[in-house]
Design a protein around this nucleic acid. Structure first.
Lengths: 348, 348
DNA sequence: TTTAGCACTCTCCACCCGAGAGTGCTAATT
DNA sequence: AATTAGCACTCTCGGGTGGAGAGTGCTAAA
């Protein structure tokens, strides 16, 4: 029994690839005979069966029952994705169409993020998720105080990177718009590009207005530190409703719960894609022992944005039986596209 | 055969109510015998069957097949909701818990809206949706121009009602932050509380900077006119995965598509809940002939906000077999709660 | 090392059958 | 006239059976 995975003969690799391919296509166990017929292999089904036995010993494929065809195992998919998958680049016509959708009428992130989710969902026929980009280090850029009604003030805080946070402040007394603007100006002059830590270290002023606003600023900056603070764009849910893996035995264990429970999602994202540089695509197959909900699913994730400055995440969630080549290409393509867009509109 | 629906005898009403109740509980056809046993009726099953025949003639219940129990029809549910449903107010302990969640640490809409979706989903065990509130009439409140990099400028536009819209502008030439601030101030002085129409009617200035910004403002105000422009908060998807009505025969017809396709959703919302005053709860049963996707589902919707000023929508989407009493109460309760919160923090 | 041949295994589907749930109808009762 | 007991009838559901067919494993030959 060969232990080293890379010692597969090229024929074994071909057969494994074909099994994976055929199984993603038909969702059925793959028979030795159908393999040589459908792909025109110049070897007999008996030979294929012999090789299948070897692959089964290595743990890459298994039989649902005696005298059934073969199904890739989790290990099999993992080997396939690591060593055998070939990126099937999107057709250039498709690429152009997508790019055009993004660049027409530059509407900004609130247009691009849902569009990215929609494109990913369509291309992969799976569930897609896209998070808003997020500064690596939280720093003050600009504040605006707008008098609204009585002592209520709308604070609009812009962080370096372009993130906008708003809050309604109920101040102790009524201030005129002039004095509010003046106070905002002071903040803008003194705090520009200051990090959260630097601002926290400032001597606290005694002016109650300034004090109150400073507290609010710090609150908002702290909130912004959370990983997935703001919006999460999902799409393609209906792609996946008829896939048994997603309905699972009981609904408590459905993989979709992962998308609804923010703590779980944060955990997943921070443990995987956050460890990677921008541009790298990570493939998580079968929950890797950690996420029970993902037992029969795979997740493909990447980061987009600007290294060490600003980044968000995007990816797809689909059944383990998934066209990895296409899916990885789609994730990479959309990720790169968003990175370009974000770079063009960076708020320094 | 009685034609007038209100001519049901009180016993017929009771039986219809019980059938609806029992069917939502068990998802099974309801037998005459089980009805008198489980609810302790003082009449015989034969009498119940006679009444059932009348109800069947009126089209309120039907038999899946001869010699099976009875199931409410769409019409039956409609009659039940219009005439028989009794609001089962949420337990006061639950109400307090929920209210407390909303009022603790007043973080604003970005906290409340997902919370509302989550509460609705939990209370109804269905899919919930919440849209951000939206001004009835679009009017300018405040603008801020922030120089970022080169000739790029971040425009932050605040509308009356508190809606914030942002856009990155690539200006023709590089302007200093001072001149940008000055321009912004001019806008703030001249445009405050001006409606979209009023601003459109203004003489176009010849200053290229002013012209460019005015165009951007109008663009953003136009975007804000769309019904569901911004975020849509969904929750409870996993509640519904195991419900056959949602998986439907083919995934093209899944009711969940309605939540993913913005045009469809806009259509649904504008045709139903938009016609209603704030506080009114609308129940849409079985798509009412218009929405094929909702054939076996019901939607309960309401508006929240401030009449004629600012409003958003919230509601739930569940199987037609749904505990309407609870669901309607939950929607009404959360709607009222959000209305209060929005009123407290109105940006005039 | 590969392959043809063949017996063997297991699934899948169609069919049947009996039990049981629930009704509709009729005749008796209130 | 309304209600009810009684009973025959209908239809579903679940289990069991059996045959067809798909696919394998093994052996022996090339």
């Amino acid at each position: 029994m060969k232990r080293n995975m890379t010692e597969l003969t090229s024929r074994q690799k071909i057969i494994l690839s074909l099994i994976v391919h055929e199984h993603t296509r038909t969702a059925q166990p793959v028979a030795s005979k159908s393999l040589i017929e459908d792909y025109g292999l110049q070897i007999s089904s008996a030979t294929v069966r012999n090789e299948m036995n070897t692959l089964a010993e290595l743990g890459f494929i298994r039989q649902p029952h005696t005298s059934a065809g073969r199904v890739p195992t989790e290990e099999g998919y993992r080997f396939f994705v690591s060593n055998l998958v070939q990126q099937t680049a999107l057709p250039s016509a498709t690429r152009n169409t997508i790019t055009h959708q993004f660049y027409q009428s530059r509407r900004g992130l609130d247009h691009w993020l849902p569009l990215a989710a929609s494109v990913l969902a369509n291309q992969s026929q799976a569930v897609s998720l896209v998070t808003a980009p997020h500064s690596e280090k939280i720093a003050f850029k600009h504040i605006e105080l707008i008098s609204t009604r009585g002592s209520q003030v709308l604070m609009v805080l812009v962080l370096v990177g372009g993130e906008i946070r708003q809050q309604i402040l109920a101040l102790d007394e009524i201030y005129s718009q002039e004095s509010l603007s003046e106070t905002a100006n002071q903040f803008n002059q003194n705090l520009e590009n200051k990090s959260l830590q630097q601002i926290e270290a400032l001597d606290s002023s005694l002016d109650p207005l300034v004090q109150q606003i400073l507290t609010a600023i710090l609150d908002q900056m702290h909130l912004s530190e959370e990983l997935v603070t703001g919006e999460l764009f999902l799409d393609g849910l209906s792609n996946v409703l008829s896939i048994p893996e997603f309905i699972a035995i009981n609904q408590e264990r459905s993989p979709l719960r992962l998308l609804e429970e923010r703590p779980m999602l944060n955990d997943l994202l921070s443990r995987t894609v956050l460890t990677e540089d921008i541009g790298g695509v990570q493939v998580l197959i079968g929950g890797e022992g950690t996420w029970q909900e993902l037992r029969d699913c795979s997740v493909i994730l990447t980061r987009y944005g600007i290294q060490d400055q600003l980044s968000g995440m995007l990816g797809i969630l689909g059944p383990m039986r998934m066209p990895y080549g296409q899916a990885i290409s789609a994730v990479r393509f959309v990720g790169d596209l968003l990175s370009d867009l974000v770079t063009d509109t960076l708020i320094e």
